[in-house]
Amino acid sequence: MATTSPKMTGPSQQRRRSLATREALTGYLFIAPYLIVGGIFTYGLLFYVFGLSFTNLTAPFSRVAPQFVGLDNYVRAFSEPDFLRSLANVFWYFVVVTLFQTIGAILLAVLLNTRLRGIRFFRTLLYAPSVTSSVVIALIFFWLYQRFGIINYILGTEIAWLQEASHLFDPLWRTLGVQNPAYFVRGPSVAWMAIMVMNIFTTIPTFMVMFLAALQDVPGYVYEAAELDGATGWRSFWYITLPLLRPVVALVVILGTIGTFQVFDQAYVLTSGGPLQTTLTPSLLIFQKTLGRQTTPEAGFGAAMAFILAFIIVVITIIQRRYIEPATQQ
C-alpha cells in the first residue's frame, strides 16, 4: 500500500486499516459456523475416508488398532465380484436414468412453457412426484409392481417385477448362441429396470422445473425471428430451444450422474440388492460392509470402495463438462 507520506495519511489510514481488520473479523465470524461444520463433517471426513482406505479397520467401534495395509484394499476391490457387479449395475442405471430423465424433463418443460389457462395447476400436479421421499415412492411402487398389481394388469403381463433376475440382453445373446456372456454385457435385470422406471418417474419433475425456468428466460423475440425465417414446431425446438438449453442440459446431466451413481434408498427398500445381486449398488455394498450385518464388518475395505466410487463420479463429470459445456461458449 502507498505509505510514502505517513504524515498526511497516517491517522486516517490507520483508522481505515483497523476498520478493515474489524470488517474482516466480522466476515470470519459470520462464516465461522460453516468453516467449523464443513471443515469437520465434509472435508475432515473426506481426508479420514482416504486414510481409512489404507487400513484393515474392521468394525467402526473396534478396540483393535487398525493397521496400515497399503493398497491392499484397492487391489482387492477390483477382484471382488460383488463390487464389480455393483459397478456394472450402477453403470447401466446411470446410462438409462440420466438419459431418460433428461429427455423427459425437456419435453415436459416445453409442454408446460405456454400461456394456456390453468397451466399452473398442471405444473403443480406434474411436480408432485418429486416432493415426496424416495422411501414413500418405493413403498408405493412395491405395491404397484406386485405380481397381481396394477402395472401388470394394465400391461396384461404377469411378471414379478422386483424378483425377476433375467437380463435385458439375455435374449440377444441366446439368439447369437453366446454361452455365458460377461455380466456387464447382459445389461440390467428386469428388477433393476423396474427400479429405473420408478426413479425416472420421480426425478423428471425435479429437472423439468429447471428446464422450465431456463425456457422462460428465453425472450419471445428469439422465436419470432425464427418464425420469420420459417422455423416453427419441431424445427424451432431443434434449432432454437435445444441449443439455448444446453447449459442446463449440462447441469442436469452432471447432477443426474452424481445422483445415479450413489443410488441407495430405492435399492435398499425394494430389493436389498437382490434378486441374484442384480440390484446391488456400490452404496448398498459399502453400507453392508460397514455395518457388517451379513458378514464381518470391513470398514477399511468399504472406505476404499467409497473412494473408488467418488473417483469414478469425478472423472465422469469432468468428461461430461468437456463434451457438453464448451459449445455453450459460442
Binding site: 463433517f41 465434509t42 472435508y43 471426513l45 473426506l46 479420514y48 475416508v49 481409512l52 479397520l57 467402526p60 467401534f61 452424481i258 451413481f261 450413489q262 441407495f264 456400490p282 452404496s283 459399502i286 453400507f287 460397514t290 455395518l291 470398514a299 468399504g302 472406505a303 467409497a306 473412494f307 466410487l309 467418488a310 463420479i313
Partner: peptide, 12 residues
C-alpha cells in the same frame, strides 16, 4: 462430496 463417500468415516 456426497453422503455415499463420507458415511463410513462418519460412522467410525
Amino acid at each position: 462430496i456426497q453422503a455415499a463417500v463420507t458415511i463410513i468415516p462418519a460412522y467410525v
